[in-house]
Amino acid sequence: MTADFLSATRTFYDTIASDYADHFRAEFVNRPVERAVLGLFAELVGVGGEVADLGCGPGRVTARLAGLGLSVFGLDLSESMLAIARRENPELRFVQGSMLELEAEVADGTLDGVLCWYSSIHTPDDRLPELFAQFRRVLRPGGHLLLAFQVGDVARRLEDPWGHPVTLDFLRRRPEQMTGLLADAGFTLYSNTVREAHTELGETSPQAFLIAVAPSSDAP
């Protein structure tokens, strides 16, 4: 966890955690597509399925998945984000760590689902194959991955959010780029959902939601 982008990401979210949590407190109220996609993911995983919410932030999506009947825990780089998640959801488990280093938390083939909800957007392109290999490693055969991200070709740099002296790049990607990398990691695409930006909510790019399935075996 010493890579520069991990340190920068952790510092950014540690700094803005309280303001971020307040700003996105009602994030699903005007987002029916997101609610539907999470519902579909929960149905595919199945009630009681073991799921990791990787890059969980303040735990709002973690709690939503728990409410849909999944056995879910959250993982995040930021201890400040995790403090909010634990305070607001004392019945759920939240751990500090990196998605790229899951070995200490998750054994091979032990999860029914992995959620990566806007949390791959700070991972450099050249580390995505490694990230997706981790997702495949922890999933059981036939397990499901849900990946959400902003669509585009140019990163958005966020500077001084809520007056805090921090800066971070938010990487946008094309669904075809991500589906290709998922296929290289052995996943089969189940669904590819893209909706237009909600400009009235301050969005500046379309949003993509990919659901992929881990292979049923390691046989070619």
Rank of each mutant, 00 (worst) to 15 (best):
R137C: 15
T167A: 15
P175Q: 10
R137Y: 14
V29E: 13
T204N: 11
T179E: 13
F41E: 12
A212T: 02
W162K: 10
F24C: 06
L146M: 12
D153E: 13
E50L: 00
P165R: 06
L111T: 02
M178Q: 14
A104P: 03
E27I: 07
L77H: 12
A183L: 07
P175A: 04
D76P: 03
A66P: 00
L139N: 05
G39S: 02
T188F: 02
E159N: 05
A26S: 15
P90Q: 06
T167P: 03
S120G: 04
G163R: 04
G49W: 06
T2V: 12
D126V: 08
A36D: 09
S7D: 11
T110K: 05
A183T: 13
A42H: 00
D108H: 09
V194T: 13
Q150N: 14
L68D: 03
R137A: 13
P165S: 10
Y13E: 14
A219L: 15
P165L: 13
P124C: 03
H23F: 12
P215K: 01
D108K: 04
V114C: 03
G97A: 07
T167E: 15
G49P: 02
P220L: 13
V151K: 08
V106A: 15
R25L: 08
S217W: 10
S205H: 15
E50A: 10
R87L: 13
L171R: 15
S98N: 14
V72C: 00
M81Q: 14
G97P: 10
E88C: 04
V95G: 03
E105S: 12
G74F: 12
S18P: 04
Q134R: 14
S78Q: 11
T193L: 06
